[in-house]
Design a protein around this nucleic acid. Structure first.
Length: 258
DNA sequence: AAATGCTCCAACCGCGTGCTT
DNA sequence: CAAGCACGCGGTTGGAGCATT
């Protein structure tokens, strides 16, 4: 099938977003809502590709984004979910309220990936000569001259900043008050039905308070098709996953037994 | 203090998929 | 049914800033 370019590339800004662009995009989405990404730049008056706008919104401007360091609980959860789901970053992100797939992917590539497989090709690539060589030779189109590009680099910080006041964070605080440091326990917010991604439905059915619940409440309804099962069976999932805390039902759903 | 190397993350790119025409 | 469109996803890259020499 022929594919048209996502947008006309001529005259569009690329690279870092300026504060002004951020403001325009935020204002537009606040008043018109998300979606229609292709037409959004034109309507909002942005010299950006729709894709770029979408990415900027989803990864940075969205009000419910949680910024700051990944907590140990989140890290644990990421590792577990990665064992379970592989590189399905969006699915994993759906289990971590306020975290974006991009952020988790970056975190994995820079931290967890290294730790779990220290001699990986990825690390060799990132640390090896190929990268430094690329840096000097592979030149892309120079970025346009922005008046002031916003470097949105997240600084290291010891505390998390919650942008949205109505965003309930994982019941971290609740749990820290108790002795529950069980490594098998998923942060309960991770079970919130925040995201439901098509075929890989990992629908956490849990009470909205995210605290109480029976087994049926906690059922992770893996709506897995044949292909996905064969993928799972063919992978090292059953070797790498301890499955402690997870029970497999005959209907294919997996629920935690803690 | 300067040069060089490395890390991290925002942003880009290309592809797959579902929906619409 | 095929073609085109729109969106979402995962992999990759660029470059600022930090660390080391």
């Amino acid at each position: 099938m022929g594919r048209s370019p996502c947008c006309a590339k001529e005259g569009l800004n690329k690279g870092a977003w300026t504060a002004q662009e951020d403001a325009i995009l935020t204002a537009y989405i606040n008043s018109h809502g998300e979606g229609q990404w292709r037409n959004l730049p034109k309507r909002a008056g942005l010299m950006r590709c729709g894709k770029s706008c979408r990415l900027r919104w989803l990864n940075y401007l969205r009000p419910d984004i949680v910024r700051g360091n990944i907590s140990p609980d989140e890290e644990e959860l990421i590792i577990r979910l990665h064992k379970l789901l592989g590189n399905r970053w969006s699915l994993i992100a759906g289990r971590l309220p306020g975290r974006t797939d991009n952020e988790i992917k970056n975190y994995w590539n820079t931290n967890l990936g290294k730790r779990t497989r220290p001699n990986s090709q990825h690390q060799q690539h990132r640390n090896g000569e190929s990268r430094s060589r690329r840096k000097s030779s592979d030149k892309k189109v120079p970025q346009p001259n922005f008046a002031k590009a916003v470097r949105t680099k997240a600084s290291k910080c010891s505390s998390r900043i919650i942008v949205s006041p109505h965003q309930r964070l994982p019941e971290k605080d609740d749990r820290t008050s108790g002795p529950s440091t069980d490594s098998t326990a998923m942060p309960s917010a991770a079970l919130s039905p925040a995201v439901d991604h098509g075929m890989d439905k990992v629908v956490g059915g849990i009470h909205s308070d995210g605290v109480t619940g029976t087994h049926s409440d906690l059922t992770l309804d893996f709506n897995i098709g044949d292909n996905c099962w064969s993928e799972l069976l063919g992978s090292d999932f059953w070797e790498t996953t301890t499955m402690d805390g997870l029970d497999l039902l005959a209907d294919g759903s997996i629920y935690p037994s803690w």
